[in-house]
């Protein structure tokens, strides 16, 4: 057993990883500092439940609504998987936002963590983007009309608005094309960008250490 570990460690550098990532000295912090990893936890939950949902979900106007109905009523624990995904999205927005406020309140975005902050803002926007694109997917009245107005809002930009609206919708109308591209954004493009950004964010957090709670003289 010990030999096997040694063999692996020699090749993978497990001890180094342990020393660098886990066995580090960090400042004492309070409960507000747990929201970063809580956001990561929720994001992972979203990923896992989202992958499960794609097993039955069909991104087409003819079948999207019925396939969601099937997940809710026809599949065992479908209600749980979708329920977690649905509520997880809301909670994720909340935790990410409070996390952002915490960083602001303790001035943790200042030297040397400026770039960590920038990646964090990117992640915040990605979370909102995931929320917006995911909202359309059930293809029900609520999601349809909310997206109709949401894309209309983007279309009010002077000059390029009409173009942006057509890019978002994939044409002038909210249609099957819109659903397909929102689906693609929701499950491939935005998560891919988010994973890269989360990686950078975590790398920076480990490299620079968790910020400390500033004292009165700081």
């Amino acid at each position: 057993m010990e030999n096997a570990f040694k063999w692996l460690d020699e090749r993978l550098g497990l001890n180094e990883i342990y020393a660098e990532v886990l066995d580090r000295q960090v400042p004492k912090v309070n409960w507000w500092f747990t929201l970063g990893s809580a956001s990561l936890f929720l994001a992972i939950m979203q990923g896992v439940t989202g992958i499960f949902l794609t097993i039955y979900y069909v991104p087409s106007p003819d079948h999207a609504y019925d396939s969601i109905n099937y997940i809710m009523n026809g599949v065992q624990f479908g209600w749980l998987i979708r329920g977690i995904h649905h509520w997880g999205a809301s909670l994720l927005v909340v935790t990410v936002f409070i996390h952002l406020l915490r960083v602001f309140f303790y001035g943790a975005y200042k030297y040397p963590r400026e770039f960590t902050w920038v990646t964090g803002v990117v992640l915040f926007l990605l979370t909102l983007g995931m929320g917006f694109t995911g909202y359309l997917l059930p293809w029900n009245q609520r999601s349809f009309w909310a997206t109709m107005v949401g894309t209309e809002i983007a279309g009010t930009a002077p000059g390029v608005g009409g173009f942006i609206l057509r890019v978002l919708r994939g044409g002038t109308d909210l249609s099957a094309v819109t659903l397909a591209r929102f689906f693609s954004m929701h499950i491939w493009i935005l998560p891919a960008v988010a994973m890269l950004t989360v990686g950078t964010h975590l790398y920076l957090v480990i490299r620079l250490g968790i910020s400390h709670i500033p004292g009165e003289d700081e």
Binding site: P61, G170, G171, D173, S175, A176, V177, A180
Partner: peptide
């Protein structure tokens, strides 16, 4: 009714 991508949908 018009074509939106591959889909005929009514507006």
């Amino acid at each position: 009714t018009k074509m939106n991508g591959w889909e005929r949908s009514s507006q």
